[in-house]
Amino acid sequence: MTRLLAWLALAVAGYFLPAALGGTTLVYNTLVVTAIFAVMAYGQDIVLSDLGEVSLAHTAFFAAGAYAAGILSVGHGWNAWATLLAAGGAALVLAVILGLITLRTREFAFSLVTYAANVVCFTVCYNWDALGGSDGFVGVPPLDLSLPGLTLAPMTNKDLWPYAYGLLLLVLWFVARFRRSRLGHAALMVHMNAPLAIMSGLDPLRVRLMVFLVSAPLTAVGGWLYAYQRAYVGPDLFETYFLVLMLTAVVLVGRRVLLGPLIGIAVLMAQKSFFSLGAYADKIVLGALLVIVLCGFPGGIVSLLEAGRTGLRRPAILRRVAR
């Protein structure tokens, strides 16, 4: 109960964060984009933390969500609720195809195939005029989720914040539920000890496929909101930047930490907005963070804190043994 109250208090406090940080346009921009990219990263988080695989196709899922929103709203005048369904649906279809193809691949074979799929999607989007070609779709209208009798049409990033934040909370709730669900437990078991999982009556291939299918729409929903926020969809959505961003966010704090990817994205976005050293140096910062964390302390920042805590608690003789 206290736990739930603490989470609720944190959620409410989070809502007022931009106002507390001064409420400038830059603050709102940064926090809206942080929420969107965090939603994107949670899709990758499930695959990386719970399945132990690196999916390089999640940029394609992110792009699929954004393209669905862009194409259907600009070209066909769909409203945002309909494009939301289409974004999730598009990513799901892609994930089904890719999931069935990669069903039996593991580790680098899985990553290579997902990477190849990403390249194919990029080339098709870049060259096919129906998908915007190299120019993409300019002039995506502002988000409009109005219902009969209720106007929900944020125009600026400041207006958009409640929506982005609400989406983030929904995704956080979903990921927390997933980790406590039967599928979440099964995924962890398949990841940690596949033979044991099989002996417990689980089908590892099915579990892996299901987790992959769950993860794709999550990332796509981030792409969906990003299309409205930025008012433009184009082949730059496939850039490695987004991939590195989500991977860094997941590993920085530590895997299977609920708020980990959010904190990771927040740190990276804050650096980019408020402590930018220029585009090139920012790239170095991003890459260096990734390298330092994985080479230096692969468990992320959380593992450092834990090591510190257990180191203090244990008697000296045990500390020496542990070392």
Partner: peptide, 17 residues
């Protein structure tokens, strides 16, 4: 192998920057 793959992406970013 999984971490190594991600690290090489990071090195790519560093070299490019």
């Amino acid at each position: 192998l999984v971490s190594l793959m991600i690290v090489t992406l990071g090195f790519g970013q560093i070299v490019e920057g």
